[in-house]
Deep mutational scan, measured.
Amino acid sequence: AEKTGIVNVSSSLNVREGASTSSKVIGSLSGNTKVTIVGEEGAFYKIEYKGSHSYVAKEYIKDIKDE
């Protein structure tokens, strides 16, 4: 089941290729951006990003809701 969340950062949140802080950064999301969460892996959520799937750190996503 998909969930949505809100990016909870003051500046921007790195979007990564994989579920690791050493993964390549492929983009960023600004605070209060709504994201669609399709899964989770460790400390990361797998999200829909620009037509494919990428990862963001869970600690920076708030207001998780089931869609």
Results as ranks from 00 to 15, higher is better:
G39P: 00
Y45K: 01
F44V: 01
G39M: 03
S23R: 03
K24G: 06
A43H: 09
I37L: 04
S12M: 12
G51I: 02
G39E: 04
G42V: 02
G42D: 07
H53Q: 08
A43D: 15
G31M: 12
S28E: 11
T4M: 09
G5T: 04
V25W: 04
V25I: 14
N14T: 11
S12C: 15
G42Q: 04
L13K: 02
E40I: 07
I64Y: 10
V38R: 04
K24T: 07
T36Y: 13
V56L: 04
I6W: 12
N8W: 09
K34M: 12
D66I: 14
G51P: 01
G27Q: 02
I26M: 07
K3C: 12
V35K: 00
K24F: 05
G5K: 04
K62R: 11
K58P: 00
H53T: 10
K46V: 14
S52T: 14
I26N: 04
N14I: 14
V35E: 00
A57D: 10
S28Q: 14
S11L: 09
K34S: 07
E48F: 11
V25E: 03
V35R: 00
S12E: 10
S12K: 12
K65Y: 10
D63G: 08
S22C: 12
F44S: 03
G18L: 11
E40M: 08
Y60N: 08
S23I: 02
Y55V: 01
L29I: 10
K24C: 07
A1R: 14
A1K: 14
K62T: 14
K3S: 07
E40H: 05
S10L: 12
S22T: 13
E59F: 07
E59G: 06
E2M: 15
K58W: 02
K62D: 14
S30W: 10
R16W: 15
L13C: 15
S28N: 09
E17P: 02
K50V: 05
R16Q: 11
I61C: 03
G39Q: 03
V56E: 00
A43G: 12
K62L: 11
S30Q: 14
K62I: 15
I61S: 01
K62N: 10
S23V: 02
T36V: 14
T4E: 07
K24Y: 04
Y49W: 11
L13E: 03
S23E: 04
Y60E: 07
Y55H: 01
H53W: 12
I64R: 04
F44Q: 01
K50T: 04
V7L: 05
S28P: 02
I47F: 02
K3T: 08
T33D: 09
T33C: 09
E2V: 15
I6F: 09
E67Q: 12
I47K: 00
E40F: 05
S52R: 12
E40Y: 05
N32Q: 10
N8K: 12
Y60I: 03
E17Q: 09
K24D: 06
V9C: 15
V15W: 01
A19E: 01
I26L: 08
K65N: 12
T33S: 10
D63E: 14
K62V: 14
K34H: 08
E59T: 07
S30G: 09
I61G: 00
S10A: 13
Y45S: 01
G31T: 13
K24H: 06
T36H: 11
K46W: 05
D63Q: 12
Y60S: 08
G31F: 12
I47M: 01
I37Q: 00
S28V: 14
V56P: 00
E41N: 07
D66V: 14
I6S: 05
R16G: 02
I61N: 01
G18A: 14
E41Q: 08
S20L: 06
G27K: 01
K34Q: 10
S11C: 15
H53V: 13
N14W: 09
I64L: 09
S23Y: 05
K65W: 10
S10R: 13
Y60Q: 07
T33W: 06
Y49V: 03
E17I: 10
A57H: 08
E48A: 09
I37C: 03
K50C: 13
E48W: 14
T21Q: 11
S52K: 13
A57V: 08
N14V: 15
I47Q: 00
V38H: 05
Y49G: 00
I64M: 08
G39D: 06
E48C: 15
T21R: 12
V25F: 04
G39K: 03
S54Q: 07
A1D: 09
S11I: 12
V35W: 02
G31K: 14
G42T: 03
I37P: 00
V35T: 00
S54C: 14
E59C: 10
E67T: 14
I26H: 03
S23C: 07
E41L: 08
E48R: 10
N32A: 08
S52G: 15
G39S: 06
V15M: 05
Y60M: 08
N32M: 10
K24E: 06
S28T: 14
G39T: 03
R16T: 09
L29F: 03
K50S: 07
S23W: 02
Y45D: 01
Y49N: 01
S54R: 11
L13D: 02
V56I: 08
K46T: 06
G39H: 03
N32D: 08
E40P: 01
K50Q: 13
V7T: 07
H53F: 15
V25L: 06
V25H: 03
I64N: 06
L29W: 02
S20A: 07
K62Y: 10
V38M: 06
D66E: 13
K50L: 12
G5Y: 05
E17C: 09
S20Q: 06
N8H: 11
G39R: 02
A57S: 10
R16L: 15
S22D: 13
A1C: 15
E41T: 07
V38N: 03
E40Q: 08
L29A: 01
G27P: 01
E40R: 04
E48Q: 10
Y49K: 00
V7M: 03
V56H: 00
A1L: 14
K34F: 09
V35S: 00
K3W: 15
L29N: 00
V25C: 07
Y49S: 01
I61Q: 00
S20G: 06
V56Q: 00
S10Q: 12
I6V: 10
K65H: 11
N14M: 13
I64E: 07
S22F: 07
S23D: 05
S52Q: 12
N14D: 15
I47G: 01
Y60H: 11
V56S: 00
V38L: 11
E41D: 09
V38E: 03
K34A: 07
S30N: 11
R16Y: 15
E2Y: 15
S54E: 03
H53D: 05
S54G: 15
N8V: 14
D63W: 12
G18C: 13
E67Y: 10
K50R: 10
G18M: 11
V9D: 06
I61P: 00
A57Q: 13
A1G: 13
G18T: 12
S23P: 01
T33R: 05
F44Y: 10
S20H: 09
I37E: 00
I26K: 04
V7Q: 02
E17F: 07
T21C: 15
V9H: 11
E2L: 15
Y55N: 00
E2C: 15
